[in-house]
């Protein structure tokens, strides 16, 4: 049953950056885009189990810190090798200065 979980406050993440959020044994990445929007994806790269939270956000791309693979964090689309498998994304909403993600 999907549920909305508070992940962080909106000002916990700089624009064009991300943070890690762990919940119920799963790890997620929460993004703050240059336009001020928030997004959420799985926290680990699909190439190898590396946390994306240490990577670099460039516009709408997140670059994995280990092998420099890139995803569009808005859609999860794999954009640069060595990543070939898309990243799972999760719905996000902002309420009262807090960021919520819908987790399965």
């Amino acid at each position: 049953m999907p549920q909305w979980i508070r992940a962080c406050a909106t000002d916990d993440i700089d624009e064009e950056d991300l943070i890690r959020f762990d919940h119920a044994g799963a790890t997620y990445a929460i993004y703050h885009s240059p336009e001020g929007d928030f997004f959420a994806t799985a926290g680990l790269c699909t190439h190898e189990n590396v946390h994306l939270c240490d990577g670099l956000v460039m516009g709408h791309l997140i670059e994995c810190p280990k092998h420099n693979g890139q995803f569009d964090y808005r859609t999860g689309e794999a954009r640069r090798t060595p990543v070939c498998v898309n990243l799972r994304t999760f719905p996000v909403k902002v309420e009262g200065g807090d960021v919520y993600i819908e987790v399965p």
């Binding site: 190439h47 190898e48 280990k66 092998h67 090798t81 060595p82």
Partner: peptide, 10 residues
């Protein structure tokens, strides 16, 4: 070699 080097870093 793009993949070879990825493995080298892993």
């Amino acid at each position: 070699w793009r993949w070879s080097h990825a493995r080298h870093h892993t």
